[in-house]
């Protein structure tokens, strides 16, 4: 069982706002879905599955970057070539 507090905590971790009114809805739905997922409890944990592929690499060769305009074209109010973000301090 997850509680409203669990859902609120996960919302903080996932950086997604959730209204108080939605908390009840999500909590109920999550419990129904997680109940369904409990079928996995009976799956035996084996060793690591053999990977389907391994050692995929590229050579250390420079590929042209985007133009400065292309980098900034989808950003809001760039400044002096920088991309603007909300304050962190």
């Amino acid at each position: 069982m997850v509680s409203k507090e669990d859902v609120a905590h996960i919302a903080t971790i996932a950086d997604i706002g959730v209204d108080e009114s939605e908390l009840d809805l999500f909590t109920g739905q999550f419990n129904a879905i997680l109940d369904y997922f409990d079928v996995l409890d009976s799956v035996p944990i084996g060793g690591d599955a053999a990977p389907l592929r391994k050692n995929v690499f590229r050579d250390d060769e420079v590929v042209p970057s985007l133009s400065h305009d292309e980098v900034l074209m989808n950003a809001t109010d760039p400044e002096d070539g920088f991309i603007r973000a909300p304050r962190v301090i």
């Binding site: 950086d15 989808n74 950003a75 809001t76 109010d77 991309i83 603007r84 973000a85 909300p86 304050r87 962190v88």
Partner: peptide, 15 residues
């Protein structure tokens, strides 16, 4: 998060 593309975030709020 709206910073690099898509709907812009509210720059008045903290990140």
């Amino acid at each position: 998060d709206g910073v690099r593309y898509g709907t812009a975030p509210d720059f008045v709020r903290s990140w």
